[in-house]
Nucleic acid binder design. Structure first.
Length: 422
RNA sequence: GGAGAGGUGGCAGAGUGGUCGAAUGCGCGUGCUUGGAAAGCACGUGUUCUCGCAAGGGAACCGGGGGUUCGAAUCCCUCCCUCUCCGCCA
């Protein structure tokens, strides 16, 4: 959620921001609702003030006297009026709030103009993705793939997009998770193992609701299976006021992630490219507003380091206004090269949300300077998503003999130097 | 899952229909005192919204929501959470 006062005071600024994101929002009606809401607030507050004064005066009157009875009769009417106006206020307030929730975050000045993924700026390239790899195959075509990654049985047991990982296939998942977590902890993040179901309030605070209704799996208890650890992690400090001295708070968490992915199709969903359940380690930061852009660069580097240690070719994209998402102020995507598919796969998305999530979630810190609570800035990024990293690893490191070489940094976690499909 | 108890300010803890945003204590802050400190004394100490250039005014909040009433922290309903006992169980 953006600052309502910003919209009130400089609607043109907000208008320009929305244009940069190429979104359509009826700002005029939001502004009109804001005006109507404030009028309604004044209305109710004035009425209540007079009611309160009259009631306080009544307290001094002896009960049962004719004057008292007269006053009761008089105040009955006022009371009815207050109730009526309060209903009207609530109605406007809810409409206003809903309208505000539909206003996207403002993109940072450094975000490039653009509408589509083609307009994203390639910020850097790492490793040689053009190096010829004659043996490379899409991972699902690697001989023996079905022994380590069983999609048909996953589809039988649960549904499409819920594969089994078996033997070395499962071991590689575990090795990657341990590698990611160990590296992230070394980089200063505190490891957290969060709940993997969240309630509606949490899903709303991070923007899954109502924006992405239908993307999450929902239980009969009205709990949502987390689409990312970002949700429980960000909500950890919901409705809290932190001491300024504790900032920045850095945390990482592994969770399985559940996404319905309604509407996906084609090459995007082949093999491990897009699953309904996948493992991911998420990095999260709560920082002082003045530090958030420095922290975004550090966050990106923390995620990049993982790919470097895995010796995987990757590139960094600075997302353009039209492709960056609703709540983000600035976002980098990390894409790894999958040599068999000959395409880039997104394995991390590092974003600065500024105060957008913090305002929804009411996560604040007490400013040393003013003594007053201020909203923190939140940032998050994957560090990293397992299946796509795994896919790239299989494709890039496939040897002529059909085995897959394990990167040196991962060997201690995997326990051997080659993964075998035999 | 069954039975019971309870959720009040940073903490502890009063308050069962009427100037209660809420006693008291602790904590914290400022000042006095002191060579300095402690003790003591005095004053202060929540959040949000709104009107206002400001000074300042107003409203809301006693777990959440709803109701009764002229008036609710106090009464009623409902949901959530915590604790105790029983049952079940990784």
């Amino acid at each position: 959620m953006i600052d309502p006062k910003l919209l009130r005071d400089s609607p043109d600024l907000v208008r320009a921001a929305i244009a940069k994101k190429h979104l359509v929002v009826d700002l005029d009606s939001v502004v009109a609702l804001d005006t109507a809401w404030r009028a309604a607030v004044q209305d109710v507050e004035n009425l209540r003030a007079s009611q309160k004064a009259a009631n306080n005066a009544m307290a001094a009157l002896p009960k049962g006297t004719p004057e008292f009875q007269a006053k009761v009769a008089e105040m009955k009417a006022v009371s009815a009026q207050v109730k009526e106006r309060e209903v009207a206020l609530k109605d406007v307030e809810e409409k206003w709030r809903q309208a505000l929730l539909a206003v996207p975050n403002l993109p940072h000045a450094s975000v490039p103009e653009g509408r589509t993924p083609e307009d994203n700026v390639i910020q850097s390239l790492h490793g040689n993705h053009e190096e010829p790899r004659p043996h490379a195959l899409p991972h699902w075509e690697i001989a023996g793939f079905e022994r380590l990654y069983d999609f048909p049985r996953g589809a039988k047991v649960t549904g499409a997009g819920f594969p089994f990982f078996i033997g070395d296939g499962a071991r590689l998942v575990r090795a990657l998770l341990n590698f990611f977590l160990d590296e992230d902890v070394r980089a200063g993040y505190t490891e957290v193992s969060p709940p993997i179901f969240v309630n509606a309030a949490s899903a709303t605070a991070t923007g899954q609701l109502p924006d992405k209704e239908g993307q999450m799996y929902e239980t009969v208890d009205k709990l949502y299976a987390v689409p990312t650890a970002e949700v429980p992690l960000t909500n950890f400090f919901r409705d809290e006021i932190l001491e300024e001295a504790v900032l920045p708070v850095l945390r990482c968490a592994y969770t399985p992630c559940f996404r319905r992915e309604a509407g996906s199709y084609g090459k995007d969903v082949r093999g491990l490219n897009r699953l309904h359940q996948f493992d991911k380690v998420e990095l999260l930061k709560w920082v002082h507003p003045s530090a958030s852009y420095d922290e975004l660069e550090k966050l990106r580097l923390d995620a990049e380091r993982l790919l470097q240690k895995l010796e995987l070719p990757y590139r960094v994209l600075l997302m353009c206004g039209g492709d960056m998402g609703f709540g983000q102020a600035k976002k980098y995507d990390l894409e790894v090269w999958a040599a068999g598919q000959k395409r880039w796969l997104e394995v991390s998305s590092c974003s600065n949300f500024e105060a957008f999530q913090a305002r929804r979630a009411q996560i604040r810190f007490r400013s040393k300077e003013t003594g007053k609570p201020e909203l923190v800035h939140t940032l998050n990024g994957s560090g990293l998503a397992v299946p796509r990293v795994l896919a790239a690893l299989l494709e890039n490191n496939l040897q002529p003999d059909g085995r897959v070489r394990i990167p040196t940094a991962l060997v201690p976690h995997f326990g051997k130097e080659f993964l075998s499909f035999q």
